[in-house]
Simulated scan of single mutants.
Amino acid sequence: MSAKNRQIVLHILACVSFMSLPVIFMSRTEKTFFEMFNPLGIRVFVLYFLLLVYFYVNYFVLIPFLFFKRQYFSFAGIQIFIFLLIIILPNAFLHDLPRGKESFIGPLPPPSEKMLHGNGFPPPPTEGGDILTQEAFFFLLMLSFSLMLRISNRWKQTEKEKLNAELSYLKAQINPHFLFNTLNSIYALAIEKSDKTPEAVVKLSGMMRYVLSESSNEYVSLEKEISYIRSYIDLQSIRFEDTINLSFSISGTTFGKKIAPLILIPFIENAFKHGINAEEDSVIKIDISIVENMLKLYVFNNKVSIHLSEESKSGVGILNTSNRLQLLYAGAYELVINDEEKYYEAHLTIHL
């Protein structure tokens, strides 16, 4: 069931439950067919129906178009008018309702001693003050509940929009970062006039297609994300060939699982960026394991002597990824980074 349909069902159940309150509060004696539908009983059911209408008018019209637009005086004036219309005026004419042996549906037996002393619901007309207090309470309850529910929904929507804006900003920073580094790899192949340049261009094309078509989604197929990582590692392997000691392994099944796009690649890219020097021992280990709904990523690289720009040294990719993890997997991930003098390793666990 979709979230929208679930919400509709909850509203229907809440309305039915509210309209059942008069019957629930009646005494057993008053729950006979005739007593439930005497004029005063009918008035109670009509009042409850009007309170429901008032709730939804408040929720869908008055709060969004008056309260949220800070037209507080207009909002308060309409609330007072509705209160007079459905609470005060009907109670002013309460003594005119018949309480004898005739009703809208036929003769009624005389009221019992128990009913006359207010042990049932609704109370007899002699207790008009109690009726007014009770109905005013329900009116204020509807007003308060509609305000709280609407404000809560608006707050959630605002938080969702803020989250989407932050994610869009982070992705906008990440995607050019990938493109820049990948083009550098192909540029190096072209300088060397390598026969592997066409293959590298094809892999880059597939990677960019993935970034353009999938990175805007909140979650993507884990199979596609792993395929993207394979392409990236293959591209780096083409460029560096035997100059690195590369270990890459994947275990577990990816079928039917989803993950946030481009959430793993920054750790792998960071290893290639900081762990490769043709004149030094360059070691990179990458291990991805999936067990049920848990994914574990382990990335290791030894640190080598390389020249990096100030922007590259800042580690913007890892920082942005940490922010995305907090936004998308708060409480459902664990990231441990060991940044030592001679090596760097990252342990990431995500509950998918």
Rank of each mutant, 00 (worst) to 15 (best):
K285A: 12
L328Q: 02
E340L: 10
P90R: 01
F60E: 14
P198Q: 13
M26S: 13
S221P: 06
V283P: 05
I337D: 08
E269R: 13
E345L: 15
S221V: 02
L325G: 10
P90N: 02
Y59T: 04
L352H: 00
F137D: 01
F81E: 00
A136L: 08
V44G: 04
P261H: 06
Q134F: 14
E135V: 08
G77I: 00
G206R: 08
P125L: 11
V220G: 02
A3S: 13
H274I: 10
N217V: 02
N164R: 15
N293A: 04
N245F: 03
S74I: 12
D281Y: 04
G77D: 05
A3Y: 15
S312H: 04
L108S: 09
F34H: 15
P123Q: 15
P107Q: 09
S309W: 11
I233S: 03
T158L: 08
I186V: 13
V316I: 15
S27A: 07
L297Q: 06
N5F: 12
E161P: 08
S213R: 13
Y329S: 06
Y56V: 01
L183V: 14
L141I: 04
N164M: 15
S282D: 02
L348D: 06
G275V: 04
P122T: 11
Q7C: 03
F138K: 09
S309K: 02
S314R: 14
K156N: 10
L179C: 03
P266C: 00
L167W: 02
F255W: 07
L143G: 00
S215G: 05
S27T: 10
L246G: 00
M142L: 13
F272G: 01
L204I: 10
M207L: 03
V201E: 07
F37R: 12
A14T: 04
L264P: 03
L183G: 02
V283I: 03
T254W: 03
M142H: 03
F137I: 04
P261I: 07
F121T: 04
M148F: 14
F139T: 00
K258Q: 03
A278T: 11
A165I: 00
P64L: 10
I80Y: 11
M207Q: 09
T126M: 13
Y232W: 12
W155S: 11
I337A: 06
G252H: 10
R43I: 05
V211L: 14
L325W: 14
K257S: 07
Q7P: 01
Y72M: 15
A92H: 12
